[in-house]
């Protein structure tokens, strides 16, 4: 029974998300829409199964929620900071540059999430990842204090992502 479930529903969360998007796009929950959407999302999830993605489990929704709140607050704050930098009258007196940060996180989905968080926050962009040394290369607009940025990435995000994905 379990094996059958696994084969039919390899990615239950993905199937549910796809069905939800289908229903949102149609703006209806009529039986026909639900059935068609269900068949389509099952087929799409089965196609994903062929791709043989790296495994990973999603646990601890509480940590995920606190991380989400943290990221939202950081996006608000850095929007403000970057806007101030742009509007500062002296155009050239800025210190921006690349920063290499060693990581402890190795889970692929954790790294992908970290990349999205870093890039979605204005003022920091994820540029490259070195798998052998497990370091990331960021470009930072306001690179005055390198240690502060390293502490932000490692302390605020990486510990929580390691709780989530490892």
């Amino acid at each position: 029974m379990r094996g059958l479930m696994r084969r039919l529903l390899p990615y239950p969360l993905m199937t549910a998300t796809l069905l939800a998007v289908w229903l949102l796009l149609n703006e209806s929950v009529a039986p026909g829409t639900v059935i068609l959407g269900g068949v389509l999302s099952l087929a799409a999830a089965a196609t994903l199964g062929v791709l043989d993605l790296p495994g990973g489990r999603f646990r601890r929704p509480a940590v995920a929620l606190s991380l989400l709140g943290l990221v939202l607050v950081d996006i608000l704050r850095s929007n403000w900071a970057v806007a101030k930098i742009i509007l500062r009258p002296d155009g050239g007196g800025r210190v921006s540059g690349f920063l290499r940060i060693p990581l402890d996180l190795r889970a692929p989905y954790g790294l992908a999430t970290l990349a999205c968080i870093v890039t979605a926050t204005p003022g920091t962009v994820w540029v490259a990842y070195d798998r052998r040394r497990n370091t990331i290369l960021l470009h930072i607009l306001d690179l005055v204090d390198e240690q502060e940025w390293i502490d932000t990435i490692k302390g605020r995000y990486e510990t929580r992502l390691m709780e989530l994905f490892e």
Partner: peptide
């Protein structure tokens, strides 16, 4: 608008890449 002003004002590509994030997030 502030983001696109940054897109105009910043001197190098790696600085400019930060600017449109203002518009596309908040």
């Amino acid at each position: 608008l502030i983001g696109t002003v940054g897109l105009l004002r910043f001197g190098s590509f790696y600085q400019r890449v930060h600017a449109p994030t203002l518009g596309s997030t908040l």
